[in-house]
């Protein structure tokens, strides 16, 4: 089967000489949900930016949806939840969420309906008219997630989307993400997290990265069927996977 995303010996050295990523190799199949874990500064965001065609690798080759990242982006195939919420402070929550559709020049009515729907998914339907500065950090992040979902992408890149959230909201959104992902069998999700529990609970595969310059040092398959639910979260298997992730992070 054609991989959705392929990295071949991808390296990135920033103009100031920082080697962020070194010879990363990776193949992602359609419909996977993959987590990246690794120490801060190991190049996770850099890999995501390169996969979205926002930054070019200095060596190696990236293939997305069978073509270049730029082409994949142009076919509206990629959505990105940045590490920061990245909202337009002058636009309402609804307009922020509707942005991808607005830029595609979808009819105003479609924009509004889809934005309402996406906001409902992240539990912010009552805040459609609010401005970003009137929201808490966690709420802003949820707006950003709604905006990524509205684009209806084939690849969803999520860079530590739940980092700023409290435990309850985090779990709710984890469930939400899983159910959205399961309802869209063609959608591939790449996810960055510092949280081993989150990685194990969400993903079918976990990629552990070494400190800078980042390479993918270990791959852990979480071969547990979905839906996973609380029974998995509290079972013995869960602890074993978390232990495996933590141990790999230490090496």
């Amino acid at each position: 089967m054609q991989p959705i995303l392929r990295l071949q010996d991808v390296s990135k050295v920033y103009p100031n000489g920082t080697a962020a990523v070194q010879e990363a190799n990776l193949e992602v199949g359609e419909g996977e949900l993959i987590s990246f874990v690794g120490p801060s500064g190991c190049g996770k965001s850099t890999i995501f930016r390169m996969a979205a065609g926002l930054s070019a690798p200095t060596a190696g080759k990236i293939e997305v949806l069978g073509t270049t990242p730029e082409e994949a982006r142009r076919s509206n195939g990629i959505s990105f939840v940045f590490q920061e919420a990245t909202l337009m402070p002058w636009s309402s929550v609804r307009d922020n969420v509707a942005l991808p559709l607005k830029l595609r020049q979808a009819p105003r009515k479609v924009q509004d309906e889809e934005a309402e729907r996406a906001l409902e998914l992240v539990g912010l339907q009552d805040y459609a008219k609010a401005l970003p500065r009137q929201l808490s950090g966690g709420m802003r992040m949820r707006v950003s997630i709604a905006r990524a979902l509205i684009a209806n992408p084939r690849i969803l890149l999520m860079d530590e989307p739940f980092g700023a959230l409290d435990e309850i909201t985090r779990q709710t959104l984890q469930e939400e993400l899983l159910s959205i992902w399961r309802r869209n069998p063609g959608m591939t999700v790449l996810f960055v997290t510092h949280n081993a529990f989150e990685a194990v609970y969400l993903s079918n595969r976990i990629l552990v990265m070494t400190p800078r310059p980042g390479r993918i040092s270990r791959e852990i398959a979480v071969d547990v069927p979905y839906p996973r639910g609380d029974r998995f979260r509290t079972g013995p298997e869960f602890g074993r996977f978390v232990g495996l992730v933590n141990e790999s992070l230490k090496h």
Binding site: R49, A52, L54, R73, R74, N76, I78, S79, F80, F82, E84, T86, M88, L99, P100, L103, R104, A151
Partner: peptide, 13 residues
């Protein structure tokens, strides 16, 4: 903002 710029690029503005 650089991130907002990236966002607009990403969604093919």
């Amino acid at each position: 903002d650089k991130n907002l710029n990236n966002l607009f690029t990403l969604y093919n503005a």
